[in-house]
Amino acid sequence: MRVVADRDTCEGLGMCEAMSELFEVGDDGSVVVHDEQPPEAARADVQAAVDACPVLALRLEG
């Protein structure tokens, strides 16, 4: 599994950050992904964060 973040689309709303510690809104107001290849055990939390993004700036591959 790989997390892909489109920083140009991100509006820094923080929904992903609220759903998973893997994500943070950086000082520039855009998403920071702390681990682009998180363990499979984190899939449910990561998927919840991806699904929570109102501007579809996040996606999972694999």
Rank of each mutant, 00 (worst) to 15 (best):
V32G: 01
A41W: 01
V50N: 05
Q37L: 04
V33N: 10
V32A: 07
G29Y: 09
F23M: 09
P54T: 04
S20N: 10
V46G: 03
E24N: 00
A18L: 14
A52T: 00
A49R: 05
A42G: 00
S20C: 15
V32S: 03
D51M: 04
Q37I: 04
A49M: 04
D51C: 03
M19I: 00
V32I: 15
Q47V: 02
C53H: 11
R43V: 10
S30M: 11
V50Q: 06
P38D: 08
V25F: 08
A42E: 15
V33M: 09
G26D: 13
Q47T: 09
R43A: 12
V25T: 07
E40G: 01
A42L: 12
V50P: 02
D35V: 05
P54F: 07
G29I: 08
E21T: 10
A52N: 02
G29V: 04
Q37K: 07
C53Q: 12
D27P: 10
S30Q: 13
Q37S: 13
E21L: 06
A52S: 14
A44Y: 03
A52P: 00
V50A: 06
H34M: 08
V32D: 04
E24G: 00
H34V: 05
D45L: 13
E36T: 12
E36C: 02
S30C: 10
E24Q: 12
E36V: 11
S20F: 01
P38V: 11
C53A: 12
D51G: 03
S20H: 07
V25Q: 02
L22W: 03
P38A: 14
Q47G: 01
A18Q: 11
P39S: 15
D51L: 04
E24Y: 00
E21D: 15
L22Y: 04
S30Y: 11
D28L: 05
E21Y: 01
V25H: 01
V50I: 13
V31T: 13
P38Y: 12
G29T: 06
L22G: 02
D35G: 03
D51F: 05
D45E: 15
V32M: 09
M19F: 08
Q37D: 14
L22S: 03
V31F: 05
V46W: 03
E24D: 07
E36F: 03
L22T: 12
M19T: 01
E24R: 13
Q47F: 03
A52K: 01
V33C: 10
S30V: 15
Q37F: 05
V33I: 07
A41S: 14
F23A: 09
V33D: 07
A41L: 06
H34N: 14
A48N: 09
L22F: 03
A44V: 11
V33K: 09
M19E: 15
E21C: 01
D35E: 15
